[in-house]
């Protein structure tokens, strides 16, 4: 079995990137549940997370932990701006669903271009959080960053779970996702919940970007692939379910890593996008829900 090593290696790599997809997917869900909107600019937060962190590290020479601690709120603020400046006024004016989607897509491109003008188009990266490695288990190499991704990812999921089940705000967010009108009537400040959901979702994207950048690179245009893959993860998990999105992300990450081994990296994005179509058409309610109902309309 000559390819067993290759196989296991790609599973390992896939789990790492899959967890990132899962985080982006959860980001989609958080906003969707609070507002009924799919934010097409979700991937941009991943890009911003990597870019801002890189800039803080290299241009200002700030230590890693401080850089992370600054990056996350900065990106979260960008999410809040997006909600306040674009989404909220559109919802107030009763804009159509497609118009809101389009506006978020436009926001993504605008942020990408601004990033391009500020940072240039050179791909950037920074070193892994822990130097040294990779850890060798037989012939399989596991970069130390993967442990950071797994560890932080698990911690984040735990924190999210606590947030949604134990805190007032988290429970209010869940109430919004069940029925926004009813939540409003019960005195949940729905508008503030939307703002919080954008901040939270942007922060999740930022963490994903910060974690993943050392294993690859970041550039102004890496947002779209992360956004698309995160969206697939969310659909696989049955849109709106955070746990499902996480599982969907892991599944997708591993499948992609295997596909790269089998088919080569050239058509990687084509494969991911085709997977998106297949999932949309065949499993509109997620792999775990089966075929029972038709596509969710909104």
């Amino acid at each position: 079995m000559p390819n067993l090593v290759e196989f296991l290696q790609s599973v390992v790599n896939g789990i790492g990137v899959g967890l990132i997809y899962g985080l982006v997917g959860i980001g989609f869900c958080v906003i969707y549940n609070a507002s009924g909107i799919v934010n097409f600019a979700q991937g941009v937060f991943v890009m911003l997370g990597g870019m801002v962190c890189q800039a803080l590290l290299t241009q200002f020479g700030i230590p890693l932990m401080l850089a992370v601690a600054l990056t996350i709120p900065l990106v979260a603020i960008s999410g809040m701006i997006m909600e306040l400046v674009i989404v909220r006024p559109m919802m107030h004016r009763g804009a159509t669903l497609f118009a809101i989607i389009l506006a978020t897509l436009a926001a993504q491109i605008m942020i990408e271009r601004i990033t391009l003008l500020t940072f240039g188009d050179r791909p950037r990266t920074y070193h892994e959080f822990t130097t040294g490695g990779p850890l060798k288990i037989g012939d399989i190499a596991i970069g130390y960053q993967l442990f950071w991704i797994l560890g932080c990812g698990a911690l984040l999921v735990l924190l999210l779970w606590l947030f949604f089940t134990r805190t007032r705000t988290g429970r209010a967010l869940r109430a919004c996702s069940q029925n926004r009108e009813a939540a409003q009537l019960l005195g949940v400040p729905v508008a503030r919940m939307m703002l919080i959901s954008f901040a939270l979702s942007a922060a999740l994207g930022a963490v994903a970007g910060i974690l993943v950048t050392p294993t690859q690179y970041t550039a102004y245009n890496v947002g779209t692939p992360f956004g698309v893959n995160g969206f697939i993860a969310a659909i696989i998990g049955g849109f709106g379910r955070a746990g499902g999105a996480l599982a969907g992300g892991l599944l997708l990450g591993v499948l992609q890593a295997l596909a790269i081994v089998a088919l080569g990296a050239g058509f990687k994005n084509v494969a991911a996008l085709s997977a998106l179509l297949v999932v949309l058409l065949l499993f509109p309610n997620g792999l775990f829900a089966g075929f029972s109902r038709g596509a969710k309309a909104h």
Binding site: V38, F40, L97, F98, I101, L105, T224, V228, F231, N269, L273, L276, L277, L280, L281, P284, A295, K296, A297, H298
Partner: peptide
């Protein structure tokens, strides 16, 4: 497909 799914599917086609 409808709504978000239609938007995302057609977006994927372009990409």
């Amino acid at each position: 497909l409808r709504g978000h799914y239609l938007a995302m599917a057609t977006f994927a086609l372009g990409l």
